[in-house]
């Protein structure tokens, strides 16, 4: 098992995070959640930076058949190196090969990997 990626508050660059996640028009999505759950374990710091780790975990469960947790952790560790996850997403969405299909949703690989870790941690 590879060591957990080095995580810092910078990693997610979620400055806009508070504003980012909220309800869809018409109350489709009930966020921000009042009772927010927190991730535990080696990737917790990274996952807990997400506004809704449960949502990420749900995506992660759908992605698990295509992305193994070990490879997700290893890949994120190699790529992050103090950079922001958003930077990785930007790298990924520069090319079709950087996207993965999660039950049809086209998602940057780094985000899908984080979701897989969230699924494990939540």
């Amino acid at each position: 098992m590879s060591p957990p990626p080095k995580l810092s508050r910078r990693t997610l660059t979620l400055g806009a995070m508070a504003a980012a996640v909220a309800a869809f028009a018409g109350g489709l999505y009930e966020l921000p959640k009042l009772l927010r759950r927190h991730a535990h374990g080696e990737h917790a710091a990274l996952i807990n930076l997400l506004a809704d780790p449960d949502a990420a975990a749900m995506v992660g469960r759908a992605a698990k058949s295509d992305i193994a947790e070990e490879s997700a952790a290893a890949d994120l560790k190699t790529r992050l190196k103090g950079r922001a996850l958003a930077d990785l997403a930007r790298e990924d969405d520069a090319d079709l090969d950087g996207l993965v299909e999660v039950e049809g949703w086209m998602v940057p690989l780094a985000i899908a990997e984080l979701c897989v870790l969230a699924a494990q941690a939540m």
């Binding site: 966020l31 958003a86 999660v102 949703w105 985000i111």
Partner: peptide, 26 residues
Amino acid sequence: VKLDELGQAAVVTVANVLGVDATGAR
């Protein structure tokens, strides 16, 4: 169309990481 739960979760998570406001997503 309305998104199912997984769709909502995908949009919220991706927008979140990208630092984008998805409050009014359609």
